[in-house]
Design a protein around this nucleic acid. Sequence first.
DNA 1: AAACAGCGGTCGGCATTACCGAACGGGAGA
DNA 2: TCTCCCGTTCGGTAATGCCGACCGCTGTTT
Lengths: 255, 255
Amino acid sequence: MAGPVQSIERAAAILRLLAGGPRRLGLGEVAASLGLAKGTAHGILRTLQHVDFVEQDAATGKYQLGAALLHLGTSYLDVNELRSRSINWADALAGRSGEAVRLGTPLEGRVLIIHHVFRPDDTLQTLDVGSLLPLHASSLGKVLLAFGTATVESALEVGLEAYTRHTLVVREDLNPALAEIREQGWAAEVQEMSMGDAGIAAPIRGHGGLVVGAIGVSGPVERICDSKGRPQPALITLLREAARAISRNLGAARW
Amino acid sequence: MAGPVQSIERAAAILRLLAGGPRRLGLGEVAASLGLAKGTAHGILRTLQHVDFVEQDAATGKYQLGAALLHLGTSYLDVNELRSRSINWADALAGRSGEAVRLGTPLEGRVLIIHHVFRPDDTLQTLDVGSLLPLHASSLGKVLLAFGTATVESALEVGLEAYTRHTLVVREDLNPALAEIREQGWAAEVQEMSMGDAGIAAPIRGHGGLVVGAIGVSGPVERICDSKGRPQPALITLLREAARAISRNLGAARW
DNA sequence: AAACAGCGGTCGGCATTACCGAACGGGAGA
DNA sequence: TCTCCCGTTCGGTAATGCCGACCGCTGTTT
């Protein structure tokens, strides 16, 4: 396999860099972060700006992401088969469980949320679609890790950040947990990402039984778990039924 | 100004192409559409795939947009100042008017929706954020055209499609309409995009009074308009107040 | 007020870079 | 089983984009 086109790789790196920080970045910062000459970075940025992938603040000259990316991002949602085939089941699952339902797929050592059904009550919630969750501290991520859709190495590259005192932060603790998830066919996360919250997730399989994504239910720990701190069996059943139905819909024969 | 980086321009063209059709595209189709050699297109696609901007269907070998774009798109929303400074006012406007509120900015001869507050009632609605509306047949687009934020030329390049019999499809009809919008400070669209629907929009100004976007209210024609088919004066007042407030928030001195 | 420092932007020479077109191989359909 | 189609590979070529020094501006410091 021949080498990738470098200018495009660099352009993508710049976009990722701009997406990383919430702050606008100057030309110098961009060039320094990627080890490029200023002139080189400027050429790439000028091109990205020309195609509306990047915008430049008129006052400060600093750069930020551009509008075209928003349209490309939603177009991705439109063509994503995993998402479109899951929507109906995710809706039903949210209705029956009374909790928020999310769908995830791996991206760069994290979990990308590609669908989010709000909890049916009318409380204020923010749309998570497009957000990135950690692989090691979310039920969706653990499923993806356990079934090989995401690699532990990619998670380690990002780093096993300790969000709460329950977060699994060492690889030796992670491995047996993943084995158990493979065994039982679903994953739980209880106050590992934020205190008071919990979630469970199950794998979604595509053609040859390959796991292509995960679906999860999440909410306050007192509703997701029973008095012993274990996920509610009834919820698990609902979740696994939904995951199986979606898998069949995607062409997974006998799961 | 030196020339833009061609490989990046081509990569962007491929992404736009993939975003255009809802269908997955083969290598040959991509190469032919852009007039590139198959080898060239393949190299670019391979790179885009490597950075997760593009995915390849394992079965058919066809290409589609990739997951990284979704995250970049939502990151764009996070840093967009026009959006973040408008959210509160858009919310309030939706509450007071009882109708859906949308925010738009120009992109490639169309209007990109960067914010969407649902109509307060509980009817089924689809999120328009990331969608593209026509410049000539939407109230948001007409505002952007009238105040020079989008050019009539860019609209003509896309084409003045006739969605209904009320759509303005000839430039000579468009120009006086835009002059009137400039005059009165707001735009209306009554059944020009789809029968039964109407909308009104007003400009949002940034620093030097430059129009940077538009905010609009839309809904069924019988609620937006009065019995004579003219937009409700009360709605217009609410809308213009919101637009003015946001403009001031963005630093527009006296509008 | 003047000098400076830091910024984004520009320019021209060099060699690396990515482009092209033809040939390959595998899969699906006939 | 044969054939066509399509994604992929490969090597030669010169066009391409990269580099690093230089420019002009703005805001700050002395």
